[in-house]
Each structure stands twice: as structure tokens, then as C-alpha cells.
Design a protein around this nucleic acid. Structure first.
Lengths: 280, 280
DNA sequence: ACAGAAAAGTAGTTTTACTATTTCCCGATC
DNA sequence: GATCGGGAAATAGTAAAACTACTTTTCTGT
């Protein structure tokens, strides 16, 4: 993404700098959190460098001076930006659970924003929109995702159903016919049941839209793939974050369909609960 | 929450300050982006205030001085420069739908991180953990949230059920007895059915944990409130964002319960799907 | 109305960021 | 091989910034 962190730019510029400025760069990279609380004098001393050199170093990156540099450095350090998954461990306080959970979710969405390909969403939305019926398939905890999708598509007046459970899924997939779409959610794209469902649905003439990992077996047997990069081993531990992106994709699909079908307030549609329930 | 955005803290402290410091506070709130590039002298002049007053103002919030204050201010405004919700409009391209959806979600989580009170999560988790059975109630699109909660609590081996539909909900709520907990999800806290369910459950001896807006009718009839600030009119249009925070709360509850009950890998629990499904 | 405390301001000191100029280092040139 | 030249860095100096100690003003309560 275009929002290159300042620290990365320092790394890139490294070879184009003289030795004194390199020492500066190394120190800033190593202790950015310290630097923002240091004066120019202290920093220059720490790196065996004179303070006009610090000045030149800052200007090199397009800043007006040291102050301006420090401010931007501070902003690029802010926890939410490009930062790692924080594992939750047994001793954690409630407060840190709250913080870590939220931050991990932020992290997940940020990654999604960088990785998602709008074109895939577009293709998926087009197929879904043209379908006469949509079967929504998932297993395990992704079932909730399927139910969520069902709710939202039905709001748009579309014919669809979340199909849960092995036997039911088989029944529906084998009865597939042209003009229908099978929408499949799978984290890894390696789940046997889902791959077989995709194949069954296609042999009946239906199209398959999968929200799953790129380069997975499921991706290869789908007509349209919406690639959601799964999390590597460490990050797999996070329960919400991994599923969050699937919900995001659903929302993007729903909104896209609403937009292209000419709704005036595309993002209002799924929020109509208020009409159906009595309030006091 | 301790990670309260600086601007919010300024707002909270407003009444405890003298008129000069109030002028400062107002200016900082109005032009935070300007302030971070101003010197103390310029700021004090702009607010008709002497510069030791600026000093005192900064120290009031626990900072060492003006510099330190500016640094933290800069960090607190980094995330999405203006916190504004970006409405999706009919003409939007797929790409901007993707971007806006993701950014609105980020925005929602960030707000949750600032507003959520860990103590409420803690109280909620405690009650849920001690319950002999948990009834999970919701209507409309929040039903998905209820199902999600059911899935996750069951992973922990807890006895619970998502109760969907008016009549079923009545049956269950009226049969409530001590040691049971009713877990209620409601965006506004004004839904009649939910309030009545809460009252019914309590009169049967059960405790009520609500995830809803503070100061709402539902909040007032609950034993434990987990306050999730609802979105004002403009932001109500966002379908995912408003519900997202309820999912976050569920996750925090599940993790908290897992931690306090001594699980070794608290954040791994809800990710055990792999055990149940065949992979290829 | 007046004592006492809180709030804000004045004046002064130290530190800081930044500038202008000079020195050093190193490779190419005659 | 001394010299010239150009980039990299340092020295020295300045204006302004941040911070402190102290004084004055403005409330508040008896």
C-alpha cells in the first residue's frame, strides 16, 4: 500500500547516505520510541554525530526540521499502524484482553484492505446478482458467517439459503442447476467437504463463488475466487480476526449488489431492523 | 478506558478547569492538527493565555510538558485523520466500496477500544461463567450475533442456547430460574421485546447481562451492562460496523472466561475447527 | 468584608532547534 | 605527487523555544 511507514523509508534510503547519517538511521530504526523523546543534541551525541547532520538527515526525507520529523515518526509508530499480532496469554488482565482483541481485529482489517482485490468482489457480486438462487455453504464456526450472509442477501430480496450440515449440503449441492450459485466460505480452502461440494455444484451447472485462501484446492475448483489471505500459524490463534474478513467481504458484496441494482441508500438496507421491532 | 483518546480526556476534564484552560481546551479540540505544529508561544497567544498556563494545561493530563503533550496529541489523531464515517453513495466504484467498508469498520473498532469498560466485561464474564445455563436473546440482524455467541460459548463447554423468535423467547424467559443468565444483544436498548424478556428472566431469578447502549431502558433492567455506544444518526447507516462491536464483545467475553478458567491457550479455543473437518 | 486558596500572569533562565561558515576527507586531474 | 574540487561533516553562533520561580489577580467561603 502507498502508506509507507517512515521507518521503511529510512531503510530504503540507507545506502544513499554517508556513514554519519547511516549511524543515525540505524539508531532511529533501533529505538524509534526513544528518539521521539530525545532532543536533537542528545540524539546527535548518542550517534557520535553533530547536530546539523541530524538536521540534514531529517530534511532528506522531506521534513522541515527535526521537530517535524519527530512528529511524523511518532505518528508512524502508533500501535495500530503496521503492527504485529499480539498473542493473548493466560496471565493477561481483562484490560489487556480487551485491548489485544480490538487491536488484533484492527490489524486483520488493515491487512484485508491491502490484500483484497476489488475486481474479485465485482465478479462475485455480478454472479450472485444474476443467480436465480444462492446456496451458502460453510462448516464449523464459519457457519455463522453463512447465516450472516443469508440474512443480508435476503434483505436485498434475493433468493438464498444458508445450508448447514453435511447431509443437507450434499442434497442441495447435488440438486444444483444452471443459473444457481454456490457461495462457499472456507478459511483454509483445504476442507474436503467444501471442495467436493464445489465440484458437485458445478457438475449440476451451477457457478461456484468461493471466499477462501488463494492457491488453495477450493480456489482451483471455483468459478470466482475472492481471495482472503489466511493467517499464518501464530495468527491462526485469533478467533475473531480470521473470520472478520469474511464478514467484511459479505458486506462489500451486499453493498456492491445494492449499488449496481440502483438502490438509493446502499448502505442503509441492512439496517432496517428498526422497522420491524417495537421500540419504547 | 485508559487508552482514551486525548481529545476525549480534554472534553471530560473541561468542567474541572478554569476559564483560561478551557479556552485552551476548546482550541485544541477544534484544531488539533494545527496545534501539533505550533509553538507554545503561538498557541498561548492564539488563546489569549500566558504560556505557563499552557504548561499547566499539559501537566494536568499527566504529561511532562508541552512537547510531550504535542507528541501524544499527534499520535492520538493519526488513525483516520477525521474520524468521519464515509458514506457509500450510488455512484461509488467497487474499489471505493471496498475501501469505505474497511475503513468504516476500522473506525468502529477504534471507537469501541476507546469506549469499552473492561470492568463491565469482567463482571459479565464472571456471571456467565457461574451460570448453569445461558439463554442468548436477540432480534433482527442481531440474531446472527446471538448464534455466534452460542457457537463460541459451546466451544468452552458451556451450556447455552441462542433463542430466536418471539414465542420461543417468551417460553424460555418465563421459565428462567436462579443460576441462569440471560444474555441479551440489542443495538439501541429500546426494543420492547428485549426489555420485557429481561424483566421476565429476572422475575424468575435469573441474572441479565446486556450488551447494549448505556442509559437505555434495557440497560436499566439489567444486572450487568456491557455498554456499547451506538452510532448517531449518520452512522446508523453502516450495517456491519454497528454489529461488529457486539462480535468484539463476545470475543472478549469468551477469551476472558477461557483465561480465568485456566486454559493454557485462551485464544486458541475457538479455532479448533480443524479437528473436526477432513483436510486434503 | 476579609482571609485564604486557586488561577493566571510577569519576568527571567536554560535549553533547543536551526543557520552560516569552516574544516576535513577523498578521488580525479594536470 | 601535489593540487584542485566537491561532498560530508563539524564548529560556532543566534534567535526562539520550553520551562521555572515568583507575583498578582480572582474567586470562595465564613
Amino acid at each position: 500500500m502507498s502508506t509507507n511507514s517512515l521507518l521503511q523509508r529510512i531503510l530504503q534510503e540507507h545506502d544513499r547516505m554517508g556513514p554519519a547519517e547511516q549511524r543515525l538511521g540505524d539508531f532511529v530504526k533501533a529505538h524509534p520510541g526513544k528518539v521521539i523523546h530525545m532532543s536533537m543534541a542528545r540524539l546527535s551525541q548518542e550517534c557520535d554525530v553533530s547536530d546539523p547532520t541530524v538536521m540534514r538527515f531529517c530534511r532528506r526525507f522531506g521534513f522541515e526540521g527535526y521537530q517535524d520529523f519527530k512528529l511524523n515518526l511518532a505518528q508512524s509508530l502508533v500501535p495500530s499502524a503496521p503492527f504485529a499480532y499480539e498473542q493473548i496469554v493466560p496471565g493477561d488482565s481483562i484490560e489487556s484482553i480487551v485491548r489485544k482483541t480490538a487491536r488484533n481485529s484492527l490489524n486483520a482489517i488493515q491487512r484485508a484492505l491491502e490484500d483484497l482485490l476489488p475486481q474479485q468482489i465485482e465478479e462475485g457480486a455480478k454472479l450472485l446478482q444474476e443467480a436465480s438462487w444462492i446456496g451458502i455453504y460453510a462448516t464449523g464456526i464459519s457457519e455463522v458467517t453463512a447465516i450472516d450472509a443469508e440474512h443480508k442477501f435476503q434483505r436485498l430480496g434475493m433468493r438464498c439459503a444458508a445450508v448447514i450440515g453435511r447431509k443437507k449440503q450434499w442434497l442441495h449441492a447435488e440438486a444444483s442447476r444452471p443459473n444457481e450459485v454456490a457461495l462457499i466460505f472456507s478459511q483454509s480452502g483445504h476442507t474436503k467437504q467444501m471442495i467436493e461440494l464445489a465440484i458437485a455444484a458445478r457438475s449440476g451447472g451451477a457457478r461456484v463463488v468461493s471466499i477462501t485462501a488463494a492457491d488453495s484446492p477450493l480456489a482451483r475448483v471455483s468459478d470466482v475466487l475472492i481471495a482472503v489471505t489466511p493467517y499464518d500459524r501464530t495468527e491462526l490463534l485469533t478467533p475473531l480476526a480470521s473470520r472478520l474478513n469474511h464478514h467484511l467481504v459479505i458486506n462489500m458484496l451486499v453493498t456492491s449488489i445494492a449499488v449496481t441494482s440502483g438502490s438509493e441508500f446502499p448502505d442503509q438496507l441492512p439496517a432496517l431492523d428498526s422497522w420491524q421491532t417495537d421500540k419504547i
